[in-house]
Computed example of a mutant assay.
Amino acid sequence: MTTSQTQIATVAAGCFWGVEHLFRKQFGEGKGLLDAKVGYCGGKTAEPTYRAVCSGETGHAEALQIKYDPDVVSYRALLEFFYRMHDPTTANRQGPDVGTQYRSAIFTHGAEQEGIAREVTDKIGREWYAGKPVTTAIIAAGQWWNAEDYHQLYLAKNPAGYECPAHFVRTFPPLS
């Protein structure tokens, strides 16, 4: 179900299977998430494949594109959760997953999202990750490419499948 208020958020936080799984768990079932797709963003290669992205030569990140209802969940809340569920202080890495495809990034859709992303990133850097550099890139969303079908809902279809150990919800106090 989509409404006229449907908006899109695009983030990258390492292996996209766990990112999708945690966002669906947190915001699914009427909590604002209308749909989510894993795919590739931020690179230079048209119609990239998983194998090509894993080579590191396409420039793409494994990413999650979320369609959400802003009357139910705010973009700010999505970004705060994004920063709770991965480690934004490790450049091109989440746990044992290493490479530019595993970078932390927020791909913004317009000036309003960019402003919110910069504000939230600044706050989490000072309040949650003080003393560690936040490596999350904030850049305008370019072309989105859906990942292959077998990657969509991967952990729902394969409950014992690989899940990055760096993907878990961290407990932080609310941002000021």
Rank of each mutant, 00 (worst) to 15 (best):
T2H: 14
T3G: 15
T3S: 15
T3M: 04
S4F: 00
S4R: 03
T6P: 00
Q7G: 12
Q7L: 15
I8Q: 09
T10E: 12
G14N: 13
G14Q: 09
C15L: 11
F16T: 04
G18T: 07
G18Y: 00
V19C: 03
E20H: 04
L22H: 01
L22T: 01
L22A: 04
F23V: 02
Q26K: 12
G30M: 05
K31M: 14
K31H: 14
G32N: 10
L34V: 02
L34K: 01
A36G: 08
K37G: 12
V38Q: 02
G39W: 02
Y40M: 03
T45D: 06
A46G: 09
A46L: 11
E47I: 00
P48C: 11
T49Q: 10
Y50H: 10
R51K: 15
V53C: 07
V53T: 13
C54V: 12
C54Y: 12
G56W: 07
G56N: 13
G56C: 08
G56M: 04
E57F: 06
G59T: 07
G59R: 01
H60A: 08
A63G: 06
A63P: 01
A63M: 03
A63Y: 00
A63S: 14
Q65E: 14
Q65N: 13
Y68G: 12
Y68K: 02
D69Q: 06
V72S: 10
Y75I: 05
R76I: 09
R76P: 03
R76L: 10
L78V: 12
F81R: 06
R84E: 14
R84V: 02
R84F: 10
H86C: 13
D87V: 00
N92M: 01
R93F: 04
R93E: 08
G95F: 02
G95W: 01
P96C: 04
G99E: 14
Q101K: 08
Y102N: 02
A105R: 00
I106V: 13
I106M: 05
T108G: 04
G110T: 08
Q113T: 13
Q113K: 01
E114A: 06
G115I: 00
E119L: 00
D122F: 11
I124M: 05
I124T: 05
G125E: 12
R126M: 11
E127W: 02
Y129Q: 10
A130N: 11
G131C: 10
G131P: 08
K132S: 15
K132P: 04
V134Y: 15
T135G: 09
T135N: 14
T136L: 03
T136S: 07
A137P: 06
G142P: 10
G142Q: 11
W144S: 03
W144R: 00
Y150F: 09
Y150C: 10
Y150N: 15
Q152R: 03
Q152F: 13
A160N: 09
A160D: 14
G161V: 06
G161A: 07
Y162P: 06
C164D: 12
P165G: 11
A166E: 10
A166C: 05
A166L: 07
A166F: 12
V169K: 11
R170H: 13
R170W: 08
T171H: 11
T171K: 12
F172Q: 09
P173T: 15
P174V: 00
L175Q: 15
S176N: 15
S176K: 08
